[in-house]
Structure formats: C-alpha cells, structure tokens
C-alpha cells in the first residue's frame, strides 16, 4: 500500500437541535492509504454519512483534524474546499444527484466547467468518462430517460472525469438491485486498479466483500477495522455491459 491519502485525528461531529446534542461522530481517527478500497458499514444512524460528508469535504468536523492529500482540510476556507471537491475527489451519492433536464454528457462536464477546462476538452473528457462506464451510446440522454443503474454510472463518470485521487460514495448501490449493484462494484474495482482510492458506505456485506478493508461504525465510533482479500466482481461493465444494450 502507498502513503496515507486520508488521515483523521479525533474527528467529532456534534449536531445541535435545540437543547439536544447529537454526537454523530466521536473522536474518529482513521488512516487510509493511497489505492485502498474501504467499505464503511454499520447500523443506520451510526455516523457513516456524517463521516463521508466530512471526508468528502462537503461538511466540516466540529473538532479534530483532517488531512487529505497533505492538506489540512479543517483549516480550509469555502473556496479551497470547493477546489478540493473539484480536483482531489469525486463524490457519488445514493440518490445519484444528477442535474435534471440536462444530458448525461453535460452532467459529466459539470466538474470540468468549474475546473476552468476549455469547452472542447470538457467534451472530449466527458465522452471518455462516459465510455469508460459503458454509456458511450447514451451521452445525450437525460437522467429521467435512464435506469437507476445508468444514472449511477453517469454519477460515477462525473466523479472520475476530473481524474481524482479519491472517490467517496455514500451507499452508491442503495437504490439499485443486486445485479446492477455488482455492475457498479465492478466499475469501482476497475477504477481501483487504475490507482484511485475508494471509500464507500454500504449496508450489505455482499457489497463490502469487494473492498480491501472493512470499517464498521457504531454510535459514532469505529467499532472494527479489518483488512481482507477483496472478491472480484463478476460482471464486467465495460465495454458495453448487459444493461447498456436495450
């Protein structure tokens, strides 16, 4: 394994709702090396999403330190955080979070727009990313014209189009059937082979088996953290996976 990409030191997150304080994360210290694929598991409400949002630079910890790719994220301002989200990592959501009434191609181009990439290069790179996730034929389709699996692939293409070092995915297969889930996992494994670090939340131990490390959360704490030999996802999505052909 490579050098550490992610390091957290006693990261806590407290939500205040009126008089009640919810401790979503309690002093979580984690180190994740470049190239690892980490599955985060745990019961609902154990703080998985909160952790992903902080690691994905969408949210900030209430206390503790967080270093990503050598930078102390907890010290960054809003602009620098946006830059981090744009350049260093890609986020994949359970609910896809694609722009509606916007083609797959334009959705994938979006991060490049904010990276200041020229229109022509945006186009080429977005095409490449969509081809890589097996959607080369559906670039001009809108999200509402696509299945859940296809939408999630567009989201993965959007996450990887900026060539990030890290992909953070919060229950990326949560809204998909098991067959489609395995396709997405195969896609992630393929990305892992090209050196991208992967961090994903899942409920299903079936899905977690494809990761090289499993972190189990409980009540805002890391309950267990174990390395494993990942299972290889069977269905190859690229080129042209089963779902792609009508």
């Amino acid at each position: 394994m490579g050098k550490p990409l992610i390091e957290t030191s006693k990261v806590s997150k407290v939500y205040r709702m009126g008089d009640v304080e919810v401790h979503a994360l309690r002093e979580v210290s984690l180190t994740i090396s470049e190239g690892e694929s980490v599955a985060v598991m745990g019961p609902s409400g154990s703080g998985k999403s909160t952790l992903m949002n902080i690691l994905g630079c969408l949210d900030r910890p209430s206390s503790g330190g967080y270093w990503l790719a050598g930078e102390e994220v907890s010290q960054l301002d809003r602009n620098a955080l946006a830059r981090m989200r744009n350049r260093t990592l890609g986020f994949v959501f359970q609910s896809f979070n694609l722009l509606s009434r916007t083609s797959a191609l334009e959705n994938v181009e979006l991060p490049l727009l904010y990276a200041g990439v020229s229109a022509r290069e945006r186009h080429t790179r977005a095409r490449e990313a969509l081809t890589r996730v097996g959607l080369g034929e559906r670039m001009h389709h809108h999200p509402n014209q696509m299945s859940g699996g296809q939408q999630q692939r567009v989201a993965v293409a959007r996450a990887l189009v900026t060539r990030p070092r890290l992909i953070v995915a919060d229950e990326p297969t949560g809204n998909l059937d098991s067959r489609t889930s395995i396709e997405i996992m195969a896609l992630f494994q393929e990305l892992g082979r090209s050196g991208i670090t992967l961090l994903l939340v899942t409920h299903e131990s079936d899905i977690a088996r494809y990761a090289s490390r499993v972190v189990v959360m409980h009540d805002g704490r890391v309950q267990s953290d174990e390395q494993q030999t990942p299972l290889q996802a069977e269905l190859g999505p690229a080129p042209a996976g089963a779902e792609v052909s009508p």
Partner: peptide, 16 residues
C-alpha cells in the same frame, strides 16, 4: 437549492 448543492459538490465555488 438541490441543484446548487450538486454544483457545489462537484466544485462550484461560492462566487461561481
């Protein structure tokens, strides 16, 4: 709001 969230999540700065 959600669109704004998506744009920010992929790297839109406040000034964008």
């Amino acid at each position: 709001t959600r669109e704004i969230g998506i744009r920010m999540a992929v790297g839109a700065r406040p000034r964008d």
